[in-house]
Computed example of a mutant assay.
Amino acid sequence: MEIWINPACSKCRTAASTLDEAGNEYTQRRYLDDPPTVAEIEDVLARLRLDPWHIARMNEPIAKEISLKDVPKDDAHRADWVAALAEHPKLIQRPIITLDDGTAVVARDDETLARIIGT
């Protein structure tokens, strides 16, 4: 299991703390310091079964700076979205947890965390 976190994010700290308390072993990736590649983002999107615009943090200032809201949300522009996420990892929703079974979740709520730890 791997968790992509930003230590400044309260949701990330809560997720890591919940995993710790449950005794789950995981690798922590500070994705702002170690940005994911385009291939890694595509892998996570496949695991999540989501499109890149579903995990984009549109309220981040960089989203406005690069006019991300103007990029169409369609297959023809998917690579543009993924490239933006790779170039500006702060745009990636957090925390993302990749599970050993090949799936992944965006663990922003207690219910999702409970499913992961099996409670």
Rank of each mutant, 00 (worst) to 15 (best):
M1F: 08
I3G: 14
W4D: 05
I5L: 10
I5E: 05
I5K: 06
N6F: 03
N6M: 04
N6W: 00
N6P: 02
P7R: 11
A8R: 15
A8I: 07
C9S: 15
C12R: 06
R13G: 14
T14R: 08
A15C: 13
A15P: 03
A15K: 07
A16P: 09
T18G: 01
T18M: 13
E21V: 11
G23L: 10
G23Y: 09
N24A: 09
E25R: 06
T27G: 13
Q28G: 10
Q28V: 05
R29F: 00
R30P: 01
Y31F: 07
D33S: 15
P36Y: 08
P36H: 05
V38N: 08
V38S: 11
V38T: 13
V38P: 04
A39I: 09
E40M: 05
D43Y: 03
D43E: 12
V44C: 11
V44K: 10
V44P: 05
V44G: 15
L48I: 06
R49P: 01
P52W: 10
W53V: 12
W53S: 15
W53N: 14
H54S: 15
I55Q: 13
A56W: 00
A56N: 11
A56F: 06
N59K: 11
N59P: 04
E60D: 15
P61F: 03
I62K: 10
K64N: 11
K64Y: 02
I66G: 01
I66C: 01
S67A: 08
L68A: 09
D70L: 15
D70F: 06
V71W: 07
D75G: 07
A76F: 01
H77R: 04
R78K: 15
A79T: 14
D80I: 12
W81F: 15
W81L: 15
V82S: 07
V82L: 13
A83R: 11
L85A: 09
A86F: 06
E87D: 12
E87T: 15
P89M: 07
Q93C: 04
Q93I: 14
R94A: 07
R94K: 07
P95G: 03
P95K: 02
T98G: 10
L99V: 01
D101E: 04
G102W: 08
T103N: 10
T103K: 05
A104Y: 00
V105C: 03
V106D: 06
A107V: 00
A107E: 01
D110T: 12
E111D: 13
T112C: 01
T112Y: 00
R115L: 09
R115E: 13
I116F: 10
I116S: 07
I117K: 00
I117S: 00
G118H: 04
G118D: 02
G118Q: 04
